[in-house]
Design a protein around this nucleic acid. Structure first.
Lengths: 194, 194, 194, 194
DNA sequence: CATGAATGAGCTTTCATTCAT
DNA sequence: GATGAATGAAAGCTCATTCAT
């Protein structure tokens, strides 16, 4: 399995740094290779093509998001609490990795539609996590029984995403994680049963 | 004033169609010129460069958004009603122009950071409109006096944007405008004063 | 005759200024037209094409060179004196018109071979003047009877030209005309009969 | 060192031929690449850009001029003899390479001011060689002690250059090298002490 | 005579990918 | 497995010239 060889990670980590520092369109394969300390051709021993680096990168990092969040919400009982942990963890991971935040919030969005479709497929896992919390909340009566799960999920994801992007575009100069409780409060109101 | 000459509009309209149909990176200047029925060189009599077409396009359309919404909310008294009109109008305009929806929700986001900064500057006008409604709602006591306007605005814009993008990525196959009331309800709950 | 109409001169004068200030390759027809205070299209009422402006310009100015020199040497008896007047006048005219010096010594040489052939044809008149002085000197015994007129002419013209070009490339910051006597002395030595 | 790799020379040699045969402005990079038997992109592995090909070409060839002349004059004692060797060698090298003569005497002069400045910097080496011969001649008393070295150098270079250019513009149809002794005689007269 | 909006051909350079070593 | 030299397709923009008014 290539994914476990050291050069695989080396190349992905190099890609995050190179893209964050140079921008998506200035991140040539040769630049990533140099940062990773391998030859250009070596990249193609681990990835089908350039797009495959980006997809793998996103898959890898998004998997980390889902894992971390699942771990954090495991002990929580109420859906509202789980949502709070999700927002907090989401913001926290981005706060921890300056480069990753730039790459996911800004640079990767410059990719073409094809790549974006694939990124969306990967995102499904994360969106499914939101859905499951919402469904659970509806089942326990914590959330309104007629809550539109798809719309609520779009609100939750759209709000976290917009908040994170604004923070990155403002050069990450304030504390993103500190915003989690208020963002959570805004989101939760619409979901609750009266 | 070049902006009032027929070829200016002709080129912008052509750009929307060409970009929606071919994607941002496959929209060569020559393709836009052909669609507009002018020579390649003519483009450069009306626009500084290719990027300028996109900026002008966005400025133009976003101006239309703001105008339409301002017109619609003019007669409304309550902030909540104004927000409903905004969501409805936002969704309605996108529903009316299949090509425009693709361009603003998907293609324009592939632009580089420079262009995105300019797009953001244009967006400021729209975000300001949201802010003014929120502030008014706080003043009249309709919204919580401690509502964080910036976060609330990010929720509102992020939710509308995410909802619209999901709709476009699903090939616009359901009725976006019909979602306005429920989206509005989700958004408004968090803003209201108890 | 178009050459006597005011706009003809206006355009030539504009060309000298524009080329001197912007360089040969940055002297678009539209720039010359603007400087001349006429519309782009008007240029083509007076000149066949862009090259024709340059040829006419050179013809015009070189004719002036020949006229001035012929006038100056008219009263001189000895060939050596005539050569001195030629060098002096050549350097003097260039010293008087900063723009013209840049155009003839630097910018016009960037033209393509076709144009250069035509410029050379015009130069023939000037070179013929040198030849006639040399032939006269040989006839009167002032110059060696076996002097190779073609080579001597190439020395004379080559030296004046190189001296003038070096002066222009040094930003015309010393007195070119003052060099005439010494240049003349260097040139004349090889021509004289023992 | 790229300059020693075979493709470096291959491309320079191709450039000389292509420029001589097609003219400066009709020498597209693709044409040079084809003549050199490499891909267009390969050019850019060896040269920064198109201009760099020309500068390198000139540097290369002019270095050859200086080397050859230095070699030839090494055994000569008198400055006058050295000058003769210089003129002869200068003419000889051009006579030997039809293409090179066209490129240096005609085509390279069409370059813009920037490139010409760089060419002039390279020429400095050659002009310095002339100066050193003149200074030596002054020191040994062979040349007049009050000889203006700069003007004499301009005469020498200007005359050789004009003679060579005239020869090229006459399709190299007479023997340039045969002119060296008479050119030398013309030049030397003005320098000698009485 | 004069205008100036419109035309459209033409070219340097980049960079993802390959493949001989 | 690893290398990195070589490939070659692809596109934005300029500007001399025209011609309807």
């Amino acid at each position: 399995m290539k994914k476990n060889k050291p050069k695989y990670r080396q190349i992905i980590d190099a890609a995050v740094i190179v893209i964050a520092e140079n921008g998506y369109h200035q991140s040539q394969v040769s630049k990533i290779a140099k940062q990773a300390g391998v030859a250009d051709g070596t990249i193609y021993l681990y990835f089908k093509n350039k797009e495959d680096i980006l997809i793998s990168l996103f898959e890898n990092k998004m998997g980390h998001f889902v894992e971390m969040i699942e771990e954090k919400i495991a002990g929580k009982v109420r859906a509202a609490e789980k949502l709070l942990m999700m927002v907090e963890t989401h913001f926290h991971i981005l706060s921890q990795d300056k480069h990753l935040a730039i790459v996911t919030q800004l640079e990767l969005r410059q990719s073409n539609i094809d790549l974006r479709q694939k990124i969306n497929a990967i995102l499904k896992g994360y969106l499914g996590l939101i859905d499951s919390i919402l469904l659970e909340g509806k089942k326990t009566g914590e959330f309104a029984s007629n809550l539109d799960v798809r719309l609520a999920r779009q609100m939750i994801f759209g709000t976290m995403d917009e908040t994170a992007t604004t923070w990155v575009m403002n050069d990450q100069k304030y504390d993103l994680t500190a915003l989690a409780p208020e963002v959570h409060r805004l989101l939760i109101s619409g979901c609750k049963s009266q």
